[in-house]
Amino acid sequence: MLTRRIIPCLDVHEGRVVKGVQFVNLRDMGDPVELGLIYEALGADELVYLDISASVEGRRTFTRAVERIASRLRIPFTVGGGVSTVEDIRRLLEAGADKVSLNTAAVLQPALLSEGAALFGRQCVVLAVDALAERDGYRVYIRGGREKTELEAFSWCRAGEVLGAGEILLTAIGRDGTRQGFDIYLTKKVVEAVNVPVIASGGAGRLEHFLEVFTEGKADAALAAGLFHEGTLTPQQVKLFLKDRGIAVRL
């Protein structure tokens, strides 16, 4: 039986893992390879590395970090952040990433999803969607949540799948960092709308939140950052909790 995945997410700035709120007050957390290996040992099923560097030099440093990660890590990992051309996708896959996530660029040039899928296979193209609940439904935001688009979240996820995305990384940006729990309604609706796997993100704070997002939300995977980085919980603890409640996990 296919298991549900627990995925820690790491923000990388200039080749170092950092922690900060809204990209300010960045605090150095360590080397992406060393932290990745620690999470692998702590039961992570997969990792996501997001490059938050804005400079060209930062991007180069990130690519070199991806090469080092691929050489050491024995679990799969996705990379994202600032990916805006087919060449960016190629560079990151050749560096050793298993999957590349597209967010802003996919909204601005949806053809990037189909080109990426045609060239490299849809299994390595992840559509990252930042959704915010508003009066008239869920809207898609881009540029790290700073810019609102005209897109409605469910139809964008469906369109992304048709275009070529092999997986959807769905973040409820209103929940991000709140520890109030995943947006179950949003997750469930997206899972029902598409036929590709969905990774739920945003709001994880307690063990029960993971259970909810898998049972009620029907997510295929759950992603969290702060709660793992601070050592509140380990992926292994989450998975033991889930297993006791009948959820298939890899232990």
Binding site: L2, R5, R122, V196, P197, D220, A221
Partner: peptide, 11 residues
């Protein structure tokens, strides 16, 4: 299968 690709850890 309901969902494709088949992505993740399986027995």
């Amino acid at each position: 299968a309901v969902r494709l690709p088949h992505i993740g850890w399986n027995l």
